[in-house]
Amino acid sequence: MTGRLVALTIGAIVLLTVPLWMPGIYYVNVTSQILFYAIFALGLDVLAGYAGLTSLGHAALFGIASYATGYILGLGAGHTVAIIGAMVIGLISTAIFAALSLRATGIGFIMITLALGEILWGLAYRWISMTGGDNGISLHGRPAPFGIALSDANAFYYATLLVFVVSLAAAYIFIHSPFGAALRGTRDQPRRMNALGYHVWMIRFWAFMFSGLLTSISGILFVYYNQFISPPTLALTSSAEVLLMVIAGGAGSLFGPIVGAALVVIVKSIVSGFIERWNFLLGAIFVAIIIFMPDGLVPGTQRLLRRWRSAAKTAKAAKTRSAS
C-alpha cells in the first residue's frame, strides 16, 4: 500500500513537472496526446475490460464528440456551449449505440459496434454539407478559461492533465463501487447475476454510458488539440488503435490502458519520424501481443514478477530448510 502511494506520488510529480524537464514543446504535446488518448482508452476499457464487451466502433463515438464541437463552433457559438453541446450529443449517441448493440454479446456485439462505426464513418465521409467530407472541419483557436489561453502548449497540457486526473479518479471510484462490482459480475457470470437479482442489461447500458462519457471527453480534447477533425478519425483503424491501447496495456485494469496509450502514442510519434509505415507496426504489435501477452503488458509483467518472486521465495525456503 505504501509502495503504491510512493509510486503515485512520483507519478504525480513527474506529470506535474513535464513542461519543466521535457526538451521541447513537441514532447509536451506528445504527453498531452498520451493523456487524452489514455482517457479514451480508459473509456473503452470500462466496456471491453470490465464489462467484457469488445467494441470495434468506439472511434465513431470519439469522432461524434469531435465533430459536434467543431460543428457547434462553426455555427458561431462559444466554447462553453460547444463543449456542453458536444458532451450532450456524445451521450445521446452513446445511448443509441448502447441500445442497438446490447442486443448481443460476444461476437455479435463486436459486429454491431463495427457496423455502427462504419455507418458513422460513411456519414462523416459522405454527408458533405454537414461534415465537410474529406476536407473535415477546422477549428480556430482553443478556449481560454479564467483568462488562461490554452493555445499555449503548456497551458493545454495542464488543462488536459487536470481532465485526465479527474477522469482517472472517476474511473477508479466507478470500478470499485458496488455498481462496478456488479458490472464485473455480469462479465464473468451474466446468467448467475440475473438469478441473483441484477438487471444485467441495465448494468451494461449504464457502463456503456460511462464509457461514452469518457470517450466524448477525450474526443473534445482531441479536436481542440488538433484543431481539425476529418473522417479517418472515425475509421475502423482508429477503433482498432484504441482497442490496441487497451489490450496492449491490459484490459480490465486501470493502469493498463494508460500504459497502452503511452506505448501507442510514443511508438507512433517516434516511428512516424522515420517511416510512414505506422499501420504495419500497429498490426504487428497487435499480432505479437495477442500471441505472446494476451492479458496485456501490465498484468503480464505483474504475473512474471509474481512468479519470479515466489520462485525466489521457494528457493530461499529450500535453502533455509537444507541448512537447518
Binding site: L236, L243, N279, F280
Partner: peptide, 28 residues
C-alpha cells in the same frame, strides 16, 4: 496464427484485424 487461438474468438477477431492492418500497409 488463428489455430493457436482456438476457442478464444475475441482474440481471433483481433488477430484478423491486426493482420489486415499489416497487409494494407504492405500493399501501400
Amino acid at each position: 496464427l488463428l489455430r493457436q487461438l482456438l476457442g478464444n474468438e475475441r482474440a481471433q477477431v483481433l488477430m484478423t484485424l491486426g493482420i489486415s492492418l499489416m497487409v494494407a500497409d504492405f500493399c501501400l
